[in-house]
Nucleic acid binder design. Sequence first.
DNA 1: TCTACATACATAAGAAAATTATGTATGTAG
DNA 2: CTACATACATAATTTTCTTATGTATGTAGA
Lengths: 107, 107
Amino acid sequence: MLKGTLQTIILKLLEDNNRMYGYEITQKVKELTTGEIMLTEGALYPALHKLEADGSLETFTEVVDGRARKYYRLTEQGGDEVKSKLSEAQAFIDQLQLLLNLKPIVK
Amino acid sequence: MLKGTLQTIILKLLEDNNRMYGYEITQKVKELTTGEIMLTEGALYPALHKLEADGSLETFTEVVDGRARKYYRLTEQGGDEVKSKLSEAQAFIDQLQLLLNLKPIVK
DNA sequence: TCTACATACATAAGAAAATTATGTATGTAG
DNA sequence: CTACATACATAATTTTCTTATGTATGTAGA
């Protein structure tokens, strides 16, 4: 029901960190959630590609220690996108909390 | 990413309300979330059928004002299922909040 | 040296879940 | 008699995620 959660997480991390590469994102999420949320590559990379195709992210490649890293950075449009996705996610989470914490209805 | 949210909402409502029928569930969710979450029939009915097939819900039909209502009620297994789904959802929401509320990292 | 594991990217096949579009049928209000 | 609300249901499509692969390099240990 909460669509685009992965995209929202990616955008938020890039808002806070300026530039990150895919593998780094998986490790950061794993670290921040103490292993409770593990991003799979099969979900992450297509999501990154889509965000780039949509114009929210831009990329540049650097070779570090002989391995290529594809860095992602927010575009200006991406900056707007984060704000809108974050408030959307918050609104949904708030409503969900409301529904799931319901007290029994006493008749 | 949060799979089974709709099922969790349904199960929680039935835990609080003992018995409900499909249309009633859509109206209750709409009312509680002031229209922010609207369940579509195409999602709701298949979800109810699946929960029944899984043994979490049982049904009985009543005719009210000439219209048939198919009521759903939690089974004992469904009662266990609610608890487990609720704590799973809460854990996920907590981690998501953590990720989405991150402060910028000052370097 | 060879093996295992971590780093780093990517795609394809399939499953799961939702949206959108229909369809049936009855009651009520104008 | 028309429109809208009530009440259920399914089919087609789309979206999103999981699982399974595949390539390639660096590092640590046996």
